[in-house]
């Protein structure tokens, strides 16, 4: 059951930061992850600081340079339905629409989606795993069908977010506000791999919150999409996902981003495959070459070798949808 905690609903960002600065305080946005974690004893809280009263964290708007500013409280449903996002940043709309279930998308926020804790069944279950302060990663020698094939070290969880790889493919930046002021972190520096610190997933410091996500203006001729492979049709985290953004100039690819979900503790960029696209027409032969390299460097464990094939499949599906 839930621990005993107090609940506050500040009406200004400054007040929210003050409230969050006290020990044992946690931010509460959509609550789809916080409540589950509290209930399952993944972590505890003395105080929940609701962000729902902070109007400045809502809304999707254009930046002066023609990019996108997405308030952290924007729900996944709003994001998926937003005409601007759908038109100019399809990869993000796809990813938001592919997450969870309609009910959860109505409640869950983009900021929360980036900051959610791992979905590893050992982390969520009754196991004192490494990331919860225990001594071992149970997945390493255990049931690791859903675990990492890239960059696993000490902890083999995969990052559960669908929007994170999409935002990584879009070279987005995450704005944080905390007691020390505001800062902006490029999204590829936002997530923390286990080799750096297996006790955290993001660079968000205690007392800090994600305030907004800024996406640069779309490149000329850019297209994107997100291919999510899953065990069932809805309400599921990705077995493997591929967020791709490709810009073409003339007949050939001028810019490519391929970022995977479900395969590593952070959104996993496959630069080698990206390079194979640039300078070539996005035709079947080019796609095939890139797909062949999409899982290079994977080090699967006892139960998740199939993810190597799924990476190739997801990348092929995503690029195929653009080609």
């Amino acid at each position: 059951m839930l621990p005993t905690f107090s609940y506050v609903r500040p009406t200004s960002l400054a007040q929210a930061i003050r409230e969050l600065s006290s020990p044992g305080a946690r931010a509460h946005a959509g609550g789809t992850d916080v409540v589950g974690c509290l209930r399952d004893g993944v972590y505890s809280a003395d105080k929940l600081v609701s962000l729902s009263g902070l109007a400045e964290l809502r809304g999707v708007s254009r930046t002066a340079s023609g990019g996108l500013r997405i308030g952290a409280l924007t729900t996944l449903a709003e994001l998926a339905a937003n005409p601007l996002v759908r038109e100019k940043y399809r990869v993000l709309a796809d990813a938001a629409a592919a997450a969870a279930s309609p009910q959860l998308r109505n409640q869950g926020t983009l900021g929360g989606n980036l900051c959610q804790r791992p979905r590893c069944w050992y982390f969520r279950g009754d196991f004192e795993c490494l990331r919860k302060g225990g001594g071992t990663c149970f997945a390493a020698e255990g049931e690791n069908q859903l675990h990492a094939i890239f960059g696993g070290e000490s902890c083999f969880m995969v990052h559960p977010s669908d929007t994170a790889p999409a935002l990584t493919a879009l070279d987005a930046a995450v704005s944080l506000v905390g007691p020390g002021g505001a800062r902006s972190v490029p999204i590829d520096a936002f997530f923390v791999p286990p080799e750096r610190d297996f006790m955290r997933e993001t660079v968000v410091e205690p007392g800090e919150i994600v305030s907004e996500i800024v996406v640069p203006p779309p490149l000329q001729g850019a297209r994107g999409c997100y291919s999510k492979l899953r065990a069932r049709g809805a309400w599921d985290f990705a077995l493997v996902g591929a967020a791709v953004v490709v810009a073409t100039r003339g007949a050939s690819v001028s810019h490519a981003r391929i970022v995977l979900s479900g395969v590593a503790a952070i959104p996993w960029r496959v630069a080698k495959a990206e390079e194979l696209l640039v300078g070539h027409a996005l035709d079947d032969a080019t796609i095939e070459r890139a797909v062949a390299k999409a899982a290079e460097g994977a080090t699967p464990m006892s139960g998740n070798e199939y993810k190597v094939a799924l990476v190739r499949g997801a990348v092929a599906e995503a690029l195929g949808a653009l080609g």
């Binding site: 069944w121 050992y122 279950g125 009754d126 196991f127 149970f138 020698e141 255990g142 049931e143």
Partner: peptide, 10 residues
Amino acid sequence: DRNTGKLVTG
């Protein structure tokens, strides 16, 4: 879980 006998799909 093969190493603890505990349910992981709980």
